[in-house]
Amino acid sequence: MHIQRKTALIAVVLVVSAIALWAVTRPAKPRLAAPSAIPVRVVNVTQQDVPRFVSGIGTVLSLHSVVVRPQVDGILTRLLVKEGQWVKAGDLLATLDDRSIRASLDQARAQLGESQAQLQVALVNLKRYKALSVDDGVSKQTYDQQQALVNQLKATAQGNQAAIDSAQVQLSYTQIRSPVSGRVGIRTVDEGNFLRSSDAQGLFSVTQIDPIAVEFSLPQQMLPTLQGLIAAPEKASVDAYLGADTDGHTGDLLGRGHLSLIDNQINSTTGTLRAKAEFSNPAQRLWPGQLVTIKIQTALDKNALVVPPTVVQRGLDSHFVYRVNGDKVEVVPVQVTYQNSDLSLIQGVQAGDVLVSDGQSRLKAGARVEVLKEPPQVIQTVDATVQP
């Protein structure tokens, strides 16, 4: 009996100890912490005039490029220009041996003189026969024969004159003149070579550099826009750049011209249309055969609401932005009217509104935010030391 009481007492002590230990060590009821502010960066909606552009890849083409070929056979006696020389239309470029043609010209002139002398005698006789025919001094047949002789000699004189004109044309071909103003290309023949008019290679080419053109292709959906630009009273501006940067920005500006024409048909295979722009090229930065990037201003949005592209978010059915209102944000649906790699034009907000530009992934309507300041600009020093 004593042992049972002792055992019960020990059990009671153990239970009380366990209850006391649990009361001491049990975790305190957690308190609900206030939600922390989400750090974000913001921008203000600005209002400005924004031009719209369309870009494409084009090839620089000369407006006039001529391969200079001989039009008569002969020996090349003189070359009066050098490779790469600038020439004007009508400048003498080369001469061919003209002795044979000059001899033919002199022969034709001699034949004309002989025919004119015979015609003069025939006209005198015709006049005499006409006077005699009044009194029947000569027969009607003799008078008619003399008239026919006069007509024959006139035709012979005309033929001789035509031979002279032809020889003069052939003689002019022995002096090769530039048909256009431009730059002389690489020469393919030297003085002393015998040239034929059937030679396809020619002597060299003369290519016009200023002004110059750029031919490019655009999607067929751009046809109405280009037609509107062509019909506009002011010529549409076209810029040509040397390639494009990896971030999508254009390279060095090579020239500024205007849209000149649209091709008369669309390529049904590629669904593109060809167009051409003309450029003034006094500095010769545009060169025939060069590949360039062209940008055409298609429109100008006045007083447009402008934000960086990172501001606009894509929803299931539409676009939206987060607008800061005090220390919280609200979701505002917007319409994107135009967008490129640098900016977006939107509708649905007001100029001056503060919109979130970075940190949207953690946001929702009514979330509390903390606006971060922009980090200080890092100024890179340039080493101006001249290396030997």
Rank of each mutant, 00 (worst) to 15 (best):
L203V: 01
N151L: 12
V369E: 02
L195S: 09
V189W: 08
V307W: 12
G255K: 01
V54Y: 04
A131L: 09
T156P: 15
L80V: 00
Q347I: 03
V54D: 07
S197V: 00
A89D: 00
W287H: 07
L273T: 01
L223C: 05
G202M: 05
Y143S: 10
G159A: 14
Q168E: 12
R99N: 14
A283R: 02
P309L: 00
K364G: 11
L259F: 09
Q158I: 00
V50M: 05
S341D: 07
K6V: 03
V184L: 02
L343T: 15
F194C: 11
D135C: 04
S36W: 09
G159Q: 13
D327W: 02
A351F: 02
V356C: 01
D245G: 14
R183G: 06
G248H: 03
K88I: 00
Q284E: 11
L119Y: 09
A157E: 08
I296H: 10
Y338V: 07
K29V: 10
V45K: 04
S104L: 07
L21A: 14
H2G: 15
I176V: 14
G182C: 02
A304T: 01
G192M: 02
V66Q: 13
V371K: 07
A37I: 05
Q168D: 09
L229N: 01
A103R: 14
D317S: 13
R177H: 03
L96W: 05
V214W: 06
V50G: 07
K130N: 15
G192N: 02
L229E: 00
T142S: 15
